[in-house]
Amino acid sequence: MSVITIERKVLEKNDEIANINRTLLKENRVFTFNLVSSPGSGKTSILEHTVDHLKDKIKLGVIEGDVQTDLDAQRIARHGVPVVQIVTRGGCHLDAPLIRDAINKLDIRNLDVLVIENVGNLVCPANYDLGEEVKVVVISTTEGDDKPLKYPAMFRNASVLIINKIDLLPYVNCNIQELIKNALQINPKLEIFETSCTSGAGIESWCGWIINRASK
């Protein structure tokens, strides 16, 4: 028997392209974050509110990832910012080559912030670097307070946690203090925002974080 030593990362091609994306975005001074969550946590709704709040202050662009349809891109486009839809046709996550192609369709010289809305999934997107600066994970109160413990890799890799649908807290079985405790147990460095897209609560302070990061 003969043995060939390899010692290569399985996702090295993805990581190489992610680094190229990151360099290109940094050279153009575009602050980029990767928005991840389960399906239905409210990523697109948060983005719609974010765009409305920020579009007169900074230049935003959006890359939308979905398994099927361009419905989310249509929703974002109605708010008057450039958006590119990626349809993965069954793929459960975005990868760096898909983002490279999407970036080429955007005028990044003319952007301050790029938001990548990933496919709704808390597993695979944790492993695929896209070239973003940070990951922002969204969890909604309807998903229960134990979610960070069930998906530790994603919560460990994220820098920001948005707890969405806080207007529903009186009606759902979710203890927000327990949720925050669980999230910080996985990642004590998480910055946390509590939002509701129905009442608009918390959107302003979340948008303040974006402006702060974009101006660094």
């Binding site: 028997m1 043995v3 060939i4 990362k9 399985v10 492993n127």
Partner: peptide, 11 residues
């Protein structure tokens, strides 16, 4: 980790 360490071949 997610890495290929080695490949083994029969002679």
């Amino acid at each position: 980790e997610l890495q290929i360490e080695q490949i083994e071949l029969e002679d």
